[in-house]
């Protein structure tokens, strides 16, 4: 939802709703561009010889920061630019390698409005390759409670992520 469609508001959501799946064919460039953009210079993210011979894995693999980058994109693709990330938890389980077909899925766990009137959606997110869960994540994202609201205007005590 990065075009002209109106952004999601809290009333559009209910627990159990699924987010549209995002699929990306991972290449060496995906891994290396992600690591370079994140300024992650550990060799297992750009040097295949190091990854294979020192780390014992089959290839270079995606770093945590780059996974966060993809997850944040996944959330705002769905919710639109007015969505504001309040919290993100990431637990890596298995590596993502070049040649993998990376699929990101998500579902709505909870929808709530806090004491300040800020609307929140809690999401369960997963990065998979085939049937293998590579990363489990959860996000708490502020969304407009109606068409006039914008979470980005919240500051100080009015922002309780």
């Amino acid at each position: 939802m990065t075009g002209d469609a109106p952004p999601l508001t809290l009333v559009d959501l209910a627990p159990g709703q699924m987010l549209p799946e995002l699929v990306h064919e991972v290449t060496p460039t995906t891994i290396v561009q992600g690591a370079a953009a994140a300024h992650v210079w550990r060799p297992m993210h750009h040097d295949k010889d190091y990854a294979v011979h020192r780390q014992g894995v089959r290839d270079v693999f995606m770093d945590t920061q780059t996974q966060g980058n993809w997850l944040e994109r996944f959330v705002t693709d769905w919710a639109g630019p007015t969505a504001r990330l309040g919290r993100l938890g990431i637990a890596m389980r298995n590596p993502v390698f070049p040649g993998d077909r990376m699929a990101i899925d998500g579902s709505v766990r909870d929808v709530e409005t806090d004491d300040t009137g800020c609307g929140w959606v809690v999401l369960d997110l997963t990065i998979r390759v085939g049937t293998t869960v590579c990363t489990e994540a959860h996000a708490k994202v502020a969304l407009p409670v109606d068409a006039t609201d914008n979470p980005w205007t919240r500051r100080g005590e009015a922002w309780q992520p």
Binding site: G34, T66, E72, R73, D77
Partner: peptide
């Protein structure tokens, strides 16, 4: 510049 490079890495078209 660094922000643009970062969002490009995840093909993130968020217009902000």
């Amino acid at each position: 510049g660094a922000i643009t490079t970062f969002v490009s890495a995840s093909h993130n078209g968020n217009p902000v």
